[in-house]
Amino acid sequence: MSKQIQERSADTAGALLSVQNLSTYYSEDETDVPVRAVDGVNFEIARGETYGLVGESGCGKSTLGLSLIRALPPQGDIVDGEIRFEGREIGQLPKSEVKDVQWADISMIYQGAQNAFNPVKTVGDQIREPLRVHNIVPEGERERRVRELLEKVNLQPDVAEQYPHELSGGMKQRAAIAMAIACEPDLLIADEPTTALDVIVQAEVLNMLQQLQDDLNFGMLVISHNLAAIMKLSDRIGVMYGGKIVESAPAETLYDAPEHPYTALLLQSLIDPRRPPDQVETIEGTPPDLRDPPSGCRFAGRCPLATEQCRDMEPPLEVVGEAHEAACFHHEEVSEL
């Protein structure tokens, strides 16, 4: 245990973002049993690094992203933990100071961003908005900056005068990216940047994100259900299950030798057109109820390796290899799955 903590604080020193024991719950009011959407999460992102986040629908990925940028809906609250951005604690910043962080330090492409555009304002006006709020570019130059940004994401500059409904899904997503990088953030969170886009546009959007990152050297948190995309884009990948990160490793390691049963099963459930359908395995059972999660390992109810111990105790996230952490008592047996 102590080894783990030491290692962690060692590489935390240079981290762009460091998240310790973060918990975010949703509740209507005090009497409501909270949804523990994020429950004790630890991870870091280095400058220029891409961290991919995958996991079952509803496991807390978007909530984690929204916590980092402090854009949770009113029901959501960070109830515990620390978010350090360039060494500064931002998890408990008062609302008035949160605005300084959003867009300028951390920006986010929200899930469903294609619909987040205001239908009655031109694309240019909307991209100009963060520039105005942060007053990064003098007013007279904003027009030019907007055009520059559009060009960066391979859109014609005259898209600035168009309304969102005039753009295709792929174009809207690129406009959302332009908006997200407008203030040159140090950390970009992209929540499902390629869903609802066809394969050809997907590849293009992903290549674009990678290129922008090479140019601007921001750290990136990419949330995606597209495993193939995430594998290619990420330096490291975190796998989330039931509000927790249960495994984290470099993409190659995770792909070749996962050490958490959920990760292994997730990879087996991948539908790849090159694989005959009968090789696809689905994961039986349902995800844990985040209002009342089981006390031991949250995956125990669905895990083929589960034992008595798993139901009684919660497995800690432990170092299992180089840059590789997993939270499973029986991680040595995962390769046999």
Partner: peptide, 12 residues
């Protein structure tokens, strides 16, 4: 389109 691999396989 918005489902992860395992849920996607199940919905299918």
């Amino acid at each position: 389109s918005m489902l992860d691999a395992s849920v996607r396989a199940r919905v299918l």
